Simulated scan of single mutants.
Amino acid sequence: MGEKMSCPFCGTQVEYAIENSPDWYRDSSLPVYRIDCHDRCRQYWLEAISGHPPQIDPDILAFLDSLNDAQRTFISESTQHACDNDILIVYSKRSLQFLATDWHYAKAAVGSYRLDNASFRISGVGFDIANMLFFVDTENARFTLRLHQAGTAVYKIQSEIYWLQALRNKGGIKTLSPVPGRDGEMIQCTSPNDLPSRYATVYDWIPGETLGALSAAEKTPELIRSLGSIVGRMHSVSETLELPDWFTRPRYYDIEWVTLQVEKALASGNIDDSAEAREKLASLPSRFSQFVAEHGERRDAFGLIHLDLAPHNIVVSEGQLCPIDVMQFGFGYYLSDILTLSRQLSKSEQAIFFEGYQEVRLLPKDYQQQLALFEEIRAL
């Protein structure tokens, strides 16, 4: 039986243990308090200061004492939801300050939309402090709220909305649908308590399970074929979509970047040291340069890609496959999206996936060799 204390977040009696911080944290020698708040917050860690015994960082406790009940409840519920989604958190004063600040932003942002009697918490499917994602619940519906990083250009967010709407309207793809604010605008700007301005967007909730959460039996040939078709339709939209002058997104797959990463890998010593392996790695920039020289940025090969089109970013909703989380989308080679998904499939599933894709748009005759090249780049 562990020692007992009041949970600093929710106030219930909990067990705690003093230990070194988890190996994945920034400093594994740092003492922490592991809080086991099974009924409410689940499990989390608080940074401590060395002593006999170590004590929870008093700056953390002082900061928590300064919060109101709504903010503490928000931190408690967000911690619970993150833990339920296998996200483990070591809290410092700084990370708690980020959360409390985002509470102010989220509260103000929710008020900018027609979301009455709404509650919100971090999504738990990611813990990106800079671009925090929230679940927003009303009496009748759920939404997602994205707080964009301070300083994000509004055109970058408008470009995201433009592409999502094109996927829905031109590709017939069910994906995130932006919700207008009270003023009719899709993007809201908020600066509560004189904090720096940040943009917020709200999207309709897509119910269902992610592709990655499905059992092997649920991943039927029909579903895999449909997956290939969806990706093909996404790329077909990108190939023909007319982009406004203000459209702005990052570009991926730069020859200079590939060259730099190869040089770092060769110098690191963390690679297969055989002469054959080093020679193959050293030749990667020239092989990629040859690929770029052959294909350039032709629209049938290069265009808007999701970039993170992994199974956890595809929701199966009412029989439809729905790509979500397009935060990283930008300009790149379509092969990148194809590789991201196909590498998660078995050989037999890959064959069905490629068939589904080619029912919509053709792949190059040597696409398997090209995918192998991109697999090498992905490994850098």
Rank of each mutant, 00 (worst) to 15 (best):
R114F: 08
V110W: 00
G111C: 09
Y91R: 04
S95P: 01
L99I: 03
W103G: 01
A130R: 08
S92E: 00
T101F: 09
A100Q: 02
W103K: 03
A141H: 06
N140A: 12
I129N: 09
N117E: 06
D86F: 15
N131P: 11
S92C: 08
K93S: 09
L133C: 14
L133S: 15
A106Q: 11
S92D: 03
Q97I: 12
K107H: 12
F98N: 08
A141L: 06
A106M: 05
I122L: 03
K93N: 12
G126T: 03
T101W: 04
A106L: 09
L88H: 15
Y105V: 02
A130Y: 05
D102N: 15
A118Y: 01
R114K: 13
V136H: 01
S95C: 06
F135P: 14
R94C: 04
A108C: 10
T101R: 15
R94A: 13
I129F: 11
D128Q: 05
L133G: 10
D128T: 02
S123G: 11
Q97R: 07
G111R: 14
D137M: 07
S119E: 05
E139K: 11
R94G: 05
M132C: 08
A130L: 11
A109F: 00
Y105K: 02
A106C: 12
S112Y: 09
R114T: 11
R114G: 10
Y91H: 05
H104F: 14
E139S: 12
F98V: 13
N140S: 12
V110F: 02
D86N: 15
A100I: 02
L133K: 15
I87S: 02
D128K: 00
Y105H: 07
F98E: 14
Y105A: 06
L115H: 01
